[in-house]
């Protein structure tokens, strides 16, 4: 489990940030992306994958959340 931060970049897509490893990347796909259910498996541009417990979408981004690493690129 790791703390991650999700924000929107200037192009409007989700951006993933893992402070512990200083890893910044765009999120290519998010399993659930609706106001009621948000999160699930997220895939990064670098090939890594993380899992966020599905929850209601955060009212405001950036948003810090605990995520589980499924598959780290590197």
């Amino acid at each position: 489990m790791a703390n991650i931060m999700i924000r929107r970049d200037s192009k409007g897509s989700y951006q993933f940030y893992l402070p512990k490893r200083d890893l910044e990347d765009t999120i290519v796909s998010m399993e659930f992306d609706t106001p009621e259910k948000w999160g699930g498996e997220i895939k990064l541009n670098n090939g890594g994958a993380y899992y966020i417990e599905p929850q209601a979408a955060p009212a405001r981004l950036p948003y810090s959340v605990r995520a589980k690493r499924l598959d780290a690129a590197e």
Binding site: M5, R7, Y17, P19, R60, P62, Y63, S64
Partner: peptide, 12 residues
């Protein structure tokens, strides 16, 4: 960038 990210999240 660390503190800027923090301020973006905490203070918008």
């Amino acid at each position: 960038n660390y503190i800027s990210r923090h301020m973006e999240e905490k203070y918008g």
